[in-house]
Write a protein that binds this DNA or RNA. Structure first.
Lengths: 140, 140
DNA sequence: CCGTATCCATTCCGATACTG
DNA sequence: CAGTATCGGAATGGATACGG
């Protein structure tokens, strides 16, 4: 995919899309958040061709989203674990899931410590929530 | 793009990706949030081929992200305006932009009423912020 | 089980030309 | 300016076979 978009314009959205903007990459990351780690798990879960999966996993490793760690079962294979950087993609995933779940069927996320549900919200520095329709981007 | 992913599994992330997961669609929406409305504006801004732009705009209109409205300048053309549903994509855009801006150069968003900066955060129902690393998805 | 390599069909995209 | 139509090349992805 060639894209022109003024190169001076270092748009952060575009930088992110360069890495995870691909269809499969994105679903692989989603699967990882759901606990999948092994090549075969991704492969059967997503039904993606193996060469494609290989390619995307490598790119995601290169981008620092995954790291390869020894398999938990002691086999000689590797598992793909989300890095810190990779786990920071959770807001993206949740935002997208919330939008996709027009009706209330959103993917639930919880506070690991308390087990209580959490939601993604726009907040001011002093902790006040701001509704989506009251938020706007500023061009500069 | 064919995708197998168990059809029973109505994953909201996937539903969202079906609509805006395309590279160009996503950047068009970003441009719209930056104030662009006209065919030509998108075209020169993104450098995308016109036939592709036509196609993506139509799909986004079909998906309810954009609606066509009469041009503000009274010309006989149409402008593409984000619908309510389309504006609800802002959290996705901001999450992605935050992630893409590893260093602090994130795209700023503000509360329209007060002009104060806002950020996207995970919160509990009682308004407490939860750090990303303490949030986890629950499988079911 | 985890990947790599190859092949082929399809899709996608950009350029161009054309219409109103 | 805002599209539509068409065409050829490039990239992509799926299937398959193969190897560690």
């Amino acid at each position: 995919m060639r894209h022109i978009c003024d190169p001076n314009e270092t748009c952060p959205v575009m930088k992110a899309v360069e890495v995870v903007g691909d269809w499969w990459s994105f679903l692989i990351v989603r699967d990882a958040f759901l606990g999948r780690k092994r090549f075969g798990e991704f492969q059967t879960s997503l039904g993606v061709a193996k060469n494609i999966l290989t390619d995307r996993l490598r790119k995601l490793v290169d981008a620092g989203v995954f790291e390869q760690v020894p398999a938990a079962d002691g086999s000689s294979y590797k598992e793909y674990a989300l890095t810190k950087r990779g786990r920071e993609l959770l807001p993206v995933l949740v935002a997208l899931g919330d939008w996709g779940a027009a009706d209330g069927g959103a993917m639930p996320v919880v506070d690991r410590k308390t087990g209580k549900p959490v939601r993604l919200e726009f907040c001011t520095a002093d902790g006040r929530k701001v509704k989506v329709e009251d938020v706007q981007m500023v061009t500069e």
